[in-house]
Amino acid sequence: EAGGYGMLVGTQSTSEERAEFAEKIKANPRNYIAQPTLSLSRVPTIIDNKFEGCHVDLRPYILYGKEIYVHPGGLTRVAMKKGSLVVNSSQGGGSKDTWVLSE
């Protein structure tokens, strides 16, 4: 558990894990937030020299000033464990550079 807080993905947890997490929340509710489970896209990702279909979350680079420029590509947060929805690097996710190739 990063920072002593941890994370629980309700749809991928057991009833025992949910009960244990409920006790942690009751003991210190200010340390937790809830959010809906997102339906993340999956893309072929090279992990351990083979392709895996991993859930991803694209973070584009946008320059905002007098004009707005959206860079082709960005940083993609990747769920590093097969089937996982966790892309947060402090909870076991990772990241990959993302490039958009065009003429």
Rank of each mutant, 00 (worst) to 15 (best):
F51N: 02
A2H: 14
N28R: 07
Q12I: 03
T14W: 09
L8S: 08
R30Y: 05
G74P: 00
L40Q: 07
V78G: 08
Y64K: 12
S95W: 11
I25T: 04
T45H: 05
V9D: 08
N28Y: 05
I47P: 00
G94P: 06
Y5V: 15
G73I: 12
E103P: 09
G83L: 03
N49F: 01
G92V: 07
G74Q: 03
E17P: 01
I46W: 12
C54D: 00
N88R: 03
V43M: 11
Q91G: 05
E67N: 15
N88L: 02
Y32N: 11
G94N: 12
I25A: 02
G53V: 02
I47E: 02
K82S: 13
M80Y: 09
G74M: 03
N28E: 06
G83C: 02
I33C: 05
T98W: 07
V56I: 14
G4P: 02
R30C: 10
L38R: 08
M7P: 00
E1Y: 06
M7C: 09
H55E: 10
C54Q: 12
Y32S: 10
I33H: 03
Q35P: 02
W99H: 10
V86F: 00
T98E: 04
S41A: 13
G92H: 06
D97T: 04
T14M: 09
N31S: 14
I33G: 05
G93T: 12
R59D: 10
K96F: 09
G93M: 06
Y69C: 15
K66M: 10
A22C: 05
A22L: 07
F21P: 01
N28T: 02
E20Q: 15
Y61E: 12
G3R: 14
H55Y: 15
G10W: 14
N88Y: 03
L58G: 03
G73A: 13
L63D: 03
L8E: 07
L101M: 10
V9E: 06
L75K: 02
A2N: 14
S90Y: 07
L63K: 05
N28F: 04
D57L: 01
S41K: 13
K50F: 03
E17T: 04
G3M: 11
